[in-house]
Nucleic acid binder design. Sequence first.
DNA 1: CCTTCGCGTCGAAGCGCTTCGATGACCTGC
DNA 2: GCAGGTCATCGAAGCGCTTCGACGCGAAGG
Lengths: 333, 333
Amino acid sequence: MRTVTIADVAKHAGVAVSTVSYVLSGKRAISATTRQRVLDSVRVLGYHPNAGARALASKRAKVIALVLPLRAGMNLPVLMQFATSVVTTARKYDHDVLLMTADEGPDGLHRVAASALVDGLLLMDVEIHDPRVPLLRKLAEPSVLIGFPADPEGLTCVDLDFARAGALCADHLADLGHREIALLGAPRVVYERGTGFAERTMAGYVEAARRHGIEADARPCEESFDEIHAAVKLLLDERPGLSGLVVHNEAATGHVLGALRILGRRVPEDVSVVAICPDDIAERASPALTSVLIPAEDVGRQAVRLLMAKLEGQAVPESTLLEPRLTIRESSR
Amino acid sequence: MRTVTIADVAKHAGVAVSTVSYVLSGKRAISATTRQRVLDSVRVLGYHPNAGARALASKRAKVIALVLPLRAGMNLPVLMQFATSVVTTARKYDHDVLLMTADEGPDGLHRVAASALVDGLLLMDVEIHDPRVPLLRKLAEPSVLIGFPADPEGLTCVDLDFARAGALCADHLADLGHREIALLGAPRVVYERGTGFAERTMAGYVEAARRHGIEADARPCEESFDEIHAAVKLLLDERPGLSGLVVHNEAATGHVLGALRILGRRVPEDVSVVAICPDDIAERASPALTSVLIPAEDVGRQAVRLLMAKLEGQAVPESTLLEPRLTIRESSR
DNA sequence: CCTTCGCGTCGAAGCGCTTCGATGACCTGC
DNA sequence: GCAGGTCATCGAAGCGCTTCGACGCGAAGG
């Protein structure tokens, strides 16, 4: 059973190959009757255009690259959520997604772009000083970044507005009347790497706390139960007046609650807790956590939209920040 | 700056286009001097073969599809680990990976195969009665499944040997002298879906326990802290002599430990706990968990190898089961 | 009535690559 | 010294698709 080509469809429908092509692409007007005849033949024969041939002739692969990090410290579930949202959205635009890992580095990007395997690039987890950024500026293929490098000039970047997220947490606790709060952040290594989002959260949080005139500090936070237990204990010892806690570390939220429980602090009676994490984690915790969610799905959708717009040659904003949303649950009062 | 084609390279090196092609593919003998001249030109010009053209001419896209599930109840981190291992391994074979989600269903598979976008398919999380299986049998493109459908006849399946994993846990606890043990498994819905691996684990565990003549039961386990707390409490109430616990639910392990802590049971002094989960979760828990790891990386690597072998036309075993490995840590004695 | 136009369709020229058969050049052995 | 055989290389024929220019035809305009 040889695979069906456009010529087979043309013959079956009794038209020229080019007519079939135009019916399928809609790039020229075709009479309703011919169109229907062609469409019927397509269905009857089970025709699927050959991707390679189309890419070659049209210079459009209808594939975008998704470059995921695969370093420690990243939150895997969020990454997956993001990836699936990208795939789903891309399909709506009739595009497929080529999965790449960051460890191929700039060369990998260059390879897929130069070989015309993909039409555009989507990069996750861009760092402040990312070696791939200069390359992206040079590349003819459009790209969209999730996260912000030091200089977003000439690029297209999308991200949650982490500064607003941090501020939202501080605001919420301040509004509830808390006067002494603390933030437990990502593991130290994340800050050292300069990933950006962690700092921005802290900065927004600190600034908001200052505005409210309340006492606030912020510290990195590792992810093993013992380290977290020790960190929470230290925090409570040092700051006896502490009554509000912001946790920006999905892997740690469960352990933080466990540590508080063991240390005899009730949530929210003794300590109010606000997390920055996906909703499912917040909902599954006990008590359910008041949280600012990381809208992985929105980010993915938005990123694909921007990339598609760029592929169409449209101008798009250099930076788009997604507004965070605070959901109040049982862990704060 | 027009993109560099093979013709440019040929001209630059002073040879025929076909010679360049043969140098690059190694499919015919080329003299060392010519080869070097061509290779130099490739480097100087920065030539990258056009993927579409190559695919069209050679009928090989050098791309494989990776189909991930995106349903609830799956373990996202493990999925990610698996995905990255697939990508990394595929690159070693000079292939790229097209990411698809299961929700496109059989049609999606048919589309990418029929359009020659991919040369082969890798499916994760195959169900007992998977609607995609009949299609895979028909497809000309080779495929490899992670997990086992009801009838693996004529397919190529890879998976961890979950029965052995379950047995290993029971063996370990029995060897330590425990006479009353229980298994906390996946959420109920996973069993209802008939995903296979959950049942197989249970079966192996039950069989091993019977062999040792010890008292064992097994129950599904939801993933919220409250439900887990209740389930553990119930278990301890019903079975006062219980001293060994197997947890086969990555999202739940942390909560199970938390529940035991609250219920006043020390681990491992009062209860020994063995988990079936990735190493990083086991290590991060407190106490560090004795565990059987799900070797996502191995599975990914092995799956790609099998697929590549099939692409080469080699025969491969229908079923390959990966041996589980028990790592003894602090949670069992 | 003839020109002009636009619509619907066709044919052919590539797109950049692989691969097959052909062609020399050179060596071997009788 | 020449048939036969290698070895290295070349040229050309596609692979299946898009797209451009051309063309026929009926309608509109002078």
